[in-house]
Every structure is written in C-alpha cells, then in structure tokens.
C-alpha cells in the first residue's frame, strides 16, 4: 500500500478523497476474500459431483451418495486454511451476510439430506437445488448483481424441473452445474472488487 498518511490538515476535497479511497480499498480486500470462498466451494462441489457420478456410473451402487457428507468435512478446513492470512481481514455487512446465507444453506442441505436419505425418501435433488438457487439469488441481491440474481433464479427453478425429469444418476450432473455457477459467482465478485 503506497499511502502514507501524515497527521496534517487538508482541504474538504482531500478529506472526501481519503474517505472514498479507504472505504473502497477496505471493501475490495474483504470482497476478494469472499470471492476465494465462492471459488473454493464451487470447485469442491464440481469435483465431488463428478466423482460421485462416475463412481455410481461404474458400480451402479447409490451408496456412493454418502460421500456428499464428506464435503463439509473437506470444505470447512480448506475454507479455514484459505481464509488465513498474515493480516486478519475484518467482516463488513456484505461478507457477513454472504457467510450467513451459505452457512444456513449448508445446514439446511445437510439436515434435509439426512432426513430424506434415512427417514422419509423424497426427491432430494429437487429440494437441494431449489434451495441452492434461492441462496444464489439472495447472494446476488446482497451483491447488487443482476447476473447472479437471474442465474440463481434460473438455476433454482430450472434445476428443480430438471430434477423431476432426469433419472437419479443424471441428476448428479445438476450439482456439477451448481459448482460451476458458484465458481462463476466467485469470479464475478473478484472482478467487482477490482
């Protein structure tokens, strides 16, 4: 950072310049960190869905779906690792809301998956993908980005319809699409923060 503020008097114009610069720089640093998390979870979701799809495709055994429960176990330590830096980044209202939205989604997804898999079998993909689209849509509203809002809406509604039409094995590829959308969201956030 090339700024080096002296403790000197300044004009109204200079004051406003400092306020704008500091707020923008801080916002950028925080959003870049959020972007890293979107890309990480998107990549992990893409890899996991393709892996499970391939394993079920080869063995014809749906037991491999249990691997989904490993995703938070792998993802959270990785997220903790990439969030670590020499200088601890603070939270602003946007990063805090994004964190809350996706943490809530994760909790819903894990609990509803367990209920549908072990207690009351239903079309799990339909519910998970609808909730995913909703979380993506709300993230877009938080980030004030129309591409993310519309993308989340189309993914949620389109994915739910596709989950009714597609057979269970092919439904897994819908999660690959979700992973790709998450990564794209991360790159949009990254470009927004430049």
């Amino acid at each position: 950072m090339e700024n080096n503020f002296e403790n000197k008097e300044m004009t109204a114009q200079e004051s406003l310049g400092i306020i704008t610069e500091m707020m923008n720089n801080s916002r950028r640093s925080i959003l870049q960190n959020s972007a890293k998390h979107f890309i990480l979870w998107g990549a992990l979701l893409t890899v996991m869905s393709l892996l499970i799809y391939e394993l079920i495709h080869v063995t014809h055994d749906p037991i491999w779906n249990m691997l989904w429960f490993a995703m938070p176990l792998i993802g959270f330590p990785m997220a903790h690792f990439i969030g670590k830096s020499k200088v601890a980044l603070p939270q602003n209202i946007i990063s805090k809301q994004l964190h809350g939205i996706w943490l809530a989604y994760c909790a819903f997804a894990v609990v509803i998956s367990a209920v549908f898999m072990f207690i009351a079998p239903q079309n799990l993909t339909l519910v998970i993908i609808l909730a995913f689209g909703f979380a993506e849509c709300v993230s877009g509203i938080t980030l004030k980005n129309w591409a993310i809002i519309v993308g989340g809406f189309i993914l949620g509604i389109g994915g739910a319809i596709a989950a009714i039409i597609l057979r269970s094995e092919a439904q897994l590829l819908l999660f690959t699409l979700c992973g790709v959308i998450l990564m794209i969201t991360g790159f949009i956030v990254k470009s927004q923060s430049k």
């Binding site: 503020f5 400092i18 306020i19 500091m22 801080s26 603070p90 602003n92 805090k96």
Partner: peptide, 24 residues
C-alpha cells in the same frame, strides 16, 4: 480520518489490518 473511514465500513478491525490499509 483514514482510520475512521475504515472502521465505519466494518464490524471491527485489527491494528495490523488498519496499518496495512493506511500504510502508516
């Protein structure tokens, strides 16, 4: 003013973060 501008946009911030952002 730089310190206040940073703190106005975040929940709280560590000294090291403010130092990095301001270059002071």
């Amino acid at each position: 003013l730089a310190v206040m501008s940073i703190l106005a946009g975040v929940e709280s911030a560590e000294f090291s973060y403010i130092k990095k952002q301001t270059g002071a």
